[in-house]
């Protein structure tokens, strides 16, 4: 099925009152963020999308694909499901070597040129993290960051899912700007649940959650793009410090002069 549009129709917040944002419409290529304080309902919102909520979840939201409720096959057969959901808890359990597992998955998805698809997937994953994956390694031996990166790469390339939901991937040691840049190269809908200013500011727009409800949509604008630049510098500074600390060096005050 060809997906062009994903619509979220508002339901009710925790108070039981209708949500201030009554509708969100997403088209292919959109990258958006979901922000809000802890417990504000961010995960619940992406859960609704993953479930193709049809006024049958506690939030009473409805999710439409190309303007109509999702067909049942989406939820019954994961290879027909257009949504890939990567949470903080999602994990690989298989102890097969990475390349063998990817081969099985690509086989099930009936992809041609399996070996080049696998190569592309591992390449993509390596661009997201600092530590390259050894394709002969068991999946369960991957680090947290490598696992998250491979989950994303597999969903984007082998799964080729048109809609990808990512719940708080920022703590996993993934290059965020790089990830956004790379992901924008694929015509998909990406929804990031995030506490990270960089991801939020680099999105096309962000949905603000409060007390279980979608309360606001904030479009990216030029002013914020400049702020994003500044944050990027700060972030790079922190990453640089982290790198030094990781490699066993000492930091002193001069570090800030160097970096500015």
């Amino acid at each position: 099925m060809h997906i062009e549009k994903l619509t979220i129709l508002g339901g009710v917040g925790k108070s039981g009152q209708p949500e201030p944002v009554a509708e969100i419409s997403l088209k292919m290529g959109d990258v958006i963020s979901v922000v809000g304080s802890t417990g504000s309902g961010k995960t619940t919102l992406v859960d609704d999308i993953a479930l193709f909520a049809d006024r049958n979840t506690p939030t009473q939201r409805q999710v439409l694909i190309n303007g109509v409720p999702a067909p049942e096959e989406f939820t019954n057969d994961p290879s027909k499901n257009p949504v890939a959901f990567i949470t903080q808890h999602t994990n690989f359990l298989s102890d097969l070597p990475v390349n063998e597992f990817l081969k099985i998955h690509a086989g099930i998805r009936r992809r041609d040129n399996i070996s080049s698809v696998i190569e592309e997937t591992i390449d993509f994953s390596n661009k997201l993290t600092g530590e390259p994956i050894d394709p002969e390694n068991a999946m369960t031996e991957l680090s947290g960051g490598q696992t998250r990166a491979l989950l994303i790469a597999d969903a984007v390339i082998i799964g080729n899912s048109p809609v990808i939901l990512l719940d708080e991937i920022e703590n996993a040691g993934i290059h965020r700007t790089k990830a956004l840049e790379l992901l924008r190269g694929y015509e998909k809908i990406f929804i990031f649940v995030t506490h990270d200013p960089r991801i939020a500011l680099l999105s096309d727009f962000r949905v603000v959650m409060q007390n279980g409800a979608m309360v606001k949509i904030i479009e990216a604008h030029d002013g914020e793009a400049k702020v994003a630049e500044e944050i990027k510098k700060l972030d790079d500074m922190i990453l640089h410090c982290r790198k030094l600390i990781r490699s066993g060096e000492r930091l002193d005050e001069d570090i800030f002069k160097e970096l500015r």
Binding site: P78, T90, N91, I108, L151, D154, G159
Partner: peptide
């Protein structure tokens, strides 16, 4: 909820 989508697909197949 505990495993990757890829593994779900393999399990199902």
């Amino acid at each position: 909820d505990l495993i990757s989508q890829a593994e779900r697909e393999v399990f199902r197949a």
